[in-house]
Design a protein around this nucleic acid. Sequence first.
DNA 1: TTCAGCGATTAACATTTCATTAACAAAACT
DNA 2: AGTTTTGTTAATGAAATGTTAATCGCTGAA
Lengths: 236, 236
Amino acid sequence: MDFSGEHIFLVEDDQTLNFIVRDNLEQNGYKVTAVDDGQKAITEFEKDKFSICILDVMLPKKDGFTVAREIRKKDDHVPIIFLTAKSMTEDRIKGLSIGGDDYITKPFSMEELLLRIKVFLKRSLKPDNTDGIPVARRVGVYNFYFENLILECGDKRKTLTYKEAELLKYFCENSNKVLSRSEILMNVWGSDDYYLGRSLDVFISRLRRYLKDDPDIKILNLHGIGFRFNARLGKN
Amino acid sequence: MDFSGEHIFLVEDDQTLNFIVRDNLEQNGYKVTAVDDGQKAITEFEKDKFSICILDVMLPKKDGFTVAREIRKKDDHVPIIFLTAKSMTEDRIKGLSIGGDDYITKPFSMEELLLRIKVFLKRSLKPDNTDGIPVARRVGVYNFYFENLILECGDKRKTLTYKEAELLKYFCENSNKVLSRSEILMNVWGSDDYYLGRSLDVFISRLRRYLKDDPDIKILNLHGIGFRFNARLGKN
DNA sequence: TTCAGCGATTAACATTTCATTAACAAAACT
DNA sequence: AGTTTTGTTAATGAAATGTTAATCGCTGAA
């Protein structure tokens, strides 16, 4: 994903940190406006439109929260990430990251900051529509509702178990591709040993049974290598 | 449902937490009055009328329970949610909390706090509502008068408890959708632990019994995942 | 105050589900 | 042939769920 054009507002009084963060953000394709005290922050914020704000909590003149309040008066929705000192309340606020704002305790790594920025920007790009109607995949003659664990053929409905659904989904996402046994195990089971391998065989056997109404769907075995899932797929 | 206009009283001495919680509540359309010590809390509480109070237990000057008692003197019914440190033992908290209240241990997620607030507000809204014209929902062959807690099938009438009605309503609002156990618990109970999970099972069992006159209504379990409520719904 | 009644939670026990493991058969490769 | 890999079905055991009963805390009446 390309975030160029995203504009980040940075408020940090420590000159060194200010420079480093700014530089790193710019290296990553962001446009950055950086200031070093709370007073300037407020005047500067009014001049432009930002995608995200990064505020040091301890600032000369006006502290970060005051600045945050002023920002909120202008913009209800811009995400704010606070930079807080380690000493502050560490575990007391952990877990608060789900709400509108977030915080990072110093010292932090640039990777961490970049990651959080990415998460926020992604979130603001699309309204969270997670509770919409579950998407059906067409798998040959079947409809496969992964979220509901339903595999439907005409008016026959089969409710899959969670793991069956996971495996079928994985096959759909990698159809007509050779998948090694360990690749499948790592991606669906999360680990790989002999007995899980046998478990996989049991699941494959079961999926073949569920899918036998369409002769064009095949889970074929490559001896000693793995499997290939062949099917005509589509969205509804 | 729209809670805008609900006024929340927040007492939390930690500046970071105070700001973040306040900001998040405001983002969610609540009006918030926030103070940072027990002394101010008491003077401030007298000035206004609140729908719900969120009190940190450990406060400078006056601790949260003392504040709670003062609040109780003024208002018998306002719900109080305590924010407690993880270290506190369960029974100590329970012993100290006064009727009708709840507590959350830090660290907590904003999501969790918001859901609990929602559950409390829903509960306190109810009594005023009873004199409106009750709306019937059709649920299969049943009529469900949520406001009156009545489930009616032909001439048979069953009076539900408040929680039974809440759960059934939640199912109606999310029919034919997979609901995870914790999703249900968070939305109907406001929190999520093992024993509430068993409580949920008891309620499901009871709802199934109440609804068994219509064979097309199903609360079906997806093992290890949650439930799906299937029914033909409609308004009257 | 104590006591009965109610509703939610917790306990206790029964039942079901499902992934894994085992066991054996069939196929593929040496 | 002999060995390994895969297919299939059944047995196992742990965990999740279903169900009924006991318990707990609250409320309101006596």
